[in-house]
Amino acid sequence: MNELILSKDLRGANGVIPLEIDTTFKRGELTVLFGKSGAGKSTILRMIAGLLEPTGGKIIIEDEIWYDSSKKINLPPQKRKVGFVFQDYALFPNMTVRQNLLYALDDKKKIVKVDEILKITELTKLENEKPDALSGGQKQRVALARALVREPKILLLDEPLSALDFAMRAKLQDELLKIQRHFNLTTVLVSHDIGEVYKLAQFVLELADGKILRQGTPSEIFGGSKISGKFKFSGEIVDIAQSDIVFIVSILVGQDVVKVVSTEEEIRDLKIGRKVTLSSKAFNPIITPI
């Protein structure tokens, strides 16, 4: 079991916000930290990795104490077995793909491991390229591969896919899931994309202003359990336009824009940019092969 009790003052645009976190998460599970920017998501990852010291609390990963303010334990990042994947990848520009992975290898006898991970992440063909010659998606894969080489007890992913386009993101989400299950890795991922959370998370911690707002499985949190809808999508409102006496609300679901007719009363709580759940109760979907 992994335990996380953290406190820290966050310095944001709106002054100082105290971060207070107390949670546990299971071994081998993929936990997503979800919330708006400034909620403290990345700060939590950095504290787990030892790059930032909390004011107080406890970090226990796989029954190993990494930080405990009451016992004055604070392992340096070098002593914590983490695999950290940064948003902008942080690959070493002077090293090839293979050298980036070799640099992460503690025991040079385990060189086979590098070959194995290059193969799993489909990077074998690119192993002699420098990072500057790679696309965003490829760089992300190298960053993930490099983190895996260290055989981490916990994999920390800081919005790893946010800089990629939709198609690449969807593909890498699948790969990430496959790899996470393959190694049965305890993983904490930071995301602000509901679609991503639905797809990847086994457990979600929703944060707002440094506090845990809700925690549970994705459907418990975003499902809106009041509705027993058969069809349910999450999306974002991109436009609200008036047409005679009704309003046409355009919602971006994945890459498609869905137009929904609403009344003035219904749109009162809606505004452009708002994340919404789109569901329908009583209708019979027609499935056509394409």
Partner: peptide
């Protein structure tokens, strides 16, 4: 140099001297 090059190397278990000579100076 991006600050997280240093941080990435720390999370890979590398000492400050190692990071300086292997990951920073060559860049």
């Amino acid at each position: 140099l991006p600050k997280n090059l240093t941080e990435a190397a720390y999370t890979l278990g590398k000492s400050k001297i190692n990071v300086l000579f292997r990951a920073l100076l060559p860049n």
